[in-house]
Write a protein that binds this DNA or RNA. Sequence first.
RNA 1: GGAUGCUUAGCUCAGCGGGAGAGCAUCGCCCUUACAAGGCGGGGGUCGUAGGUUCGAACCCUACAGCAUCCACCA
Length: 857
Amino acid sequence: MLDKRYDPHQVEEGKYQTWKDEGYFTAGDTSKQPFSLVIPPPNVTGKLHLGHVMDTIPDDIIVRYKKMMGYDVLWVPGMDHAGIATQAKVEEKLRKNGISRYDLGREKFLEVAWDWKKEYANTIHQQWAKIGLSVDYTRERFTLDEGLSEAVRKVFVTLYEQGLIYQGEKIINWDPELRTALSNVEVIHSDDEGEFFYFLYDIVGTDEQIVVATTRPETMFGDTAVFVNPNDKRYGKYVGKMVINPANGEQIPLMADSYVDPAFGTGAMKCTPAHDPNDFALAKKYGFPFIKVLDESAKMNSLAGEYEGMDRYECRKALVEKIKQQGHLQKIEKFVHSVGHSERSGAVVEPMLSKQWFVRMKPLAERVLEQQKGPDKVEFLPARFEKVLIRWMSNIDDWCISRQLWWGHRIPAYYNQNTGEIRVSMEAPAGDEWKQDEDVLDTWFSSALWPFATLGWPHKTPDYDRYFPTSVLNTGYDIIFFWVARMVFQSEHFTDKAPFKTVVIHGLIRDEQGRKMSKSLGNGIDPIDVIERYGVDALRYFITTNSAPGLDMRYSDEKLQSASNYLNKIWNATRYVEMTLGEGYVPTAINKKELGALEKFILSRLEATIKKVQSKMDAYNFLAASGILYNYVYDDFCSFYLEMSKVSLADEKKEVMVKAVLYKVIREIILMIYPYCPFIAEELYLSLPGHKKSIMLETYPVYDASLHSPKAEKLGAMLNAIISDVRGYKASKGLAPNASIRLAFEGKYPFAGIEDYLKRFLFASSVEQNAKLRGDSFVYEGATLTVEEDVDVETLRANLLKEEEKLVFEVSRSQKMLANPGFIAKAPKEKIDAETEKLNANQAKLDTVRARLKELA
RNA sequence: GGAUGCUUAGCUCAGCGGGAGAGCAUCGCCCUUACAAGGCGGGGGUCGUAGGUUCGAACCCUACAGCAUCCACCA
């Protein structure tokens, strides 16, 4: 017998381990259709947060649902080495002990990093268990394991040979704190307040000056020219002359190019080819040299003269002061402009000329754009997110993939120390003279291969054949560029297939005030704390049923409480059913011929619910699916049928039939809630008679059209309406809910036995047919119910008039619609029929009400 | 500069072409043997504004406003 109260911790205890030990998570039943997905691999940087819960719980729901639907489901788990992120964490840990990575050296540092990985992988495993992920551990992968590494090398070498990977010197984003290059998507732009410095440049051979504005005075040591717009009348006469760079006194040319916007600043712009992408392009056009003035820590180099060794900002300050004293500073303005920050370190990113490895994106992106036009495209849910991918792919720059880090896949390029020759190959060339490139690859380079590399690619393994392409991927909109886009192009290039059929995009979880959860705000929520308070199932339910697909949601204690209450409701409904069934109950099949009106009702509603829930589940719309089930559980089952069954059970003849119905309904409710809340579902399932070893071996309820009857639903709905009306009547009269009343039906009863239900639920002392009672009447289709109460005639008349007014409104509304030629001509037939039926029913009710009013007069 | 989303009950959010919904909060009545973390009943919304399309608009279109997010540029 179940406890009176649902205790999530007691329920969760031990279940996961049992499922795992029984092998329920392991895929491979080849008698079934395959269905596969890969986990968005969490970074081994720390504990899981709510974002990971959002990434994985929808997947888990899909996996558990699809298994019940008869698929052989493979969910591949794994983790990401997360190059920069993990290295930053490890370095931070070392720094606390006063050690830098350079003190340790590459090899020792990697040992520390691997220890770190082991520790956090362990934590993550525990958390996966805690939240109940049904991942196939026999196929777990890590982005740095041998298989993935081989795939990475294969991809690198192949793209190199195809001319799609190249080494080049370009302006890249440099993180001076972590001392590595970054890709464009790893740079976060924010509008920062800065200063705009207006400097006076002497024009050689004249006694005139030109004002040049800049936000980056410290880069002036690398300037090669000043540019103006060729149509700018102010400066036309000076073009071709030399001007004096006030930072170092050197002469640089004043030139004209249409790139310059005359309306911006002073219309004169300094050109720093090695520290600005636009200037770089100009310099290439005019053949200027590229002069670097910053080192890898963003400190000034020797070209800065007296400022050598200074931090870029110190130098800026000192240099501006010097120029000011020399009389070449016109003014300083406050200036808000977008500044790039490193996603990981937060440092202001330095655009810098650097030799790096790049992926040539155009051809790869074009392939994706082409495929998205055809039948083999990746389907996005919600569909609008496809546009995000398309736009990004359409305007893509080459991808800088080399990182000056140690934790990651080392680039398979080898340099001959004697000849300078470069070789890119799967294995190191023979001979001591070959030295491997020191850099590693962007962590997303390996993540991009995740869906196929985890299944064995580049080898043709049975798993790869059976489970690739995967069926669905679930992830947040914030990593469409980082991950989704890159998986798509790598997959299409290397396997000729999209990596997944469908991408389900979810929003982000925010705090209760709607702010992004972040470390700096300290508003992050630890899922483990939530589980402590409400249980895993409540967390799972909350996270998947509280926002529309693709939209952000707020964390809410209130909603978790509500989820927990819902589970308690199901728990207690099950408890009631089990108490009713009694010890040793043996489930019996439903005998359709013996069903009573209410049983037909609740079963019909059940079938309707199964059908709707399934269609929403198939569309991965968990909010909608859960809402439909929720309404069924509360309104149809708990509030209505369950209560009614207490009356039915008083009749011995009905006992077998009612028990069979209660059993079927509660069992199927449990099966439907199971993908969301597997722990409580397993507990309840196992407490039911006639269960298998685990709910994980069950199949999903199957829609049975023979039990789906709109007519049966109508009768139940009428009884429901009667109860609600009479209860409302009592409340409006100030009567206690249990005040005794008498009821009379005009005409025949809507269904046999309705008296017993009415007596019980409305505290009716008698229910009679065609008895003359004085009191309010309620009119239903085919039946009129009169409630006798001690009310005066005036109140009675007032109530009837109110009812009449309501019905007149309803009737005239229907009449107007039906009299509207446009409606008749253009509305679908079902709408017209429904409206006609409504009109007739209301008209009949109205007639009855008027007849009663006449009697009273 | 470009794009996207949001604006619905006091709060948090669903609904997105045929009569305004949920949770929480609020008010009233109930400890009725599944559940008081409960039950029953009630109050509360001209669905951001203005136009348009349609027989019919919270829902489609167009403008506008506010909020949020993304991309690009920023000397």
